[in-house]
Design a protein around this nucleic acid. Sequence first.
DNA 1: TTGGAGTGTCAACAAGGCTGACATAAAGTA
DNA 2: TACTTTATGTCAGCCTTGTTGACACTCCAA
Lengths: 170, 170
Amino acid sequence: MADGRQNSAVRGDSLLFLTDEQLRQGSEAMFFAYRGFTADPDRILADLTYGRAHHRAIHFIGRAPGTTVNNLLNILGVTKQSLNRVLRTLISDGLVKSQVGRNDKRERHLHLTDAGRALEQELSDAQRARLRAAFRDAGPEAVAGFRTVLEAMMDPEMRASYARLKESGT
Amino acid sequence: MADGRQNSAVRGDSLLFLTDEQLRQGSEAMFFAYRGFTADPDRILADLTYGRAHHRAIHFIGRAPGTTVNNLLNILGVTKQSLNRVLRTLISDGLVKSQVGRNDKRERHLHLTDAGRALEQELSDAQRARLRAAFRDAGPEAVAGFRTVLEAMMDPEMRASYARLKESGT
DNA sequence: TTGGAGTGTCAACAAGGCTGACATAAAGTA
DNA sequence: TACTTTATGTCAGCCTTGTTGACACTCCAA
């Protein structure tokens, strides 16, 4: 990929960060970084019978206690069958409890049990340790940029879910 | 959320960007963004019989033509059985060709065929379109920060692979 | 009362990870 | 030369996690 033939490059110095080569490096950075991002929790989960899907369920239940199955479905973007399989094991293993809704008894509200919270903590700690080191090394401005780009990369519905979670955490 | 992005982070000496809440938002941003990142190529691949694993193989073969199986194995971080299954279909479908090494005849050097290059282009274009839009919206400084943080998030071996690819592209 | 929403579950299947075992050819080494 | 190691391929079998399709049940709302 010679820099001469990049059409975005010829428009001016300010757009050099949008060359195909830069974008390709961006994708590769995403690929390698995501590997690192999931590596630590994956190691913990491998010892249990759990996988990444369990981690995601535990994470978002912990983040939004009392959430319904349907809401979780929207956040995770999988089928109810797929989620249900995961929830079933988590419930029967006593990490998650499912409560019939008071207003609408069709809904199930999901909460972590103490054991669930403990595992959530363990997984989050592992993941956060890496992120914390990365953030600290990169510095506040880089972190702000990191989040700006990630947010711009999301699908609109995902961006909305993300924003809702962000608000609920403050 | 009082003032748009809650950037307690922009003050250089403050460590508020390292709070657990900020880190948690960082993980969630990674999760949602990665979904967006893979969504477009996934849609193209779904129509063919291929999956994300095929995309990755095609991408890195296209990026480093003539690479050996072992090298690809290290970059992708999967087992040879897993990679071989993917390569077998790509070769028999005429997207990738495998050549016995000249110096070391045990090695196989992998190249994309014209058809392989065409698919690689189609997939890259889809993925780059989203990345380009995100980069443009976020601006050069944010993109620089994005890459700094991602790089800091990688495992050292991945960072080395990433650096090698980065150099080879310039 | 009926339709539809929210949920759970069964069955079947596919992709793509994994391990283990074994085969082959080529290269390196004692 | 004989032995070992490396690079690769392949078979078999297992797991997780995604998918579709079908069906049942409960309950809300029109």
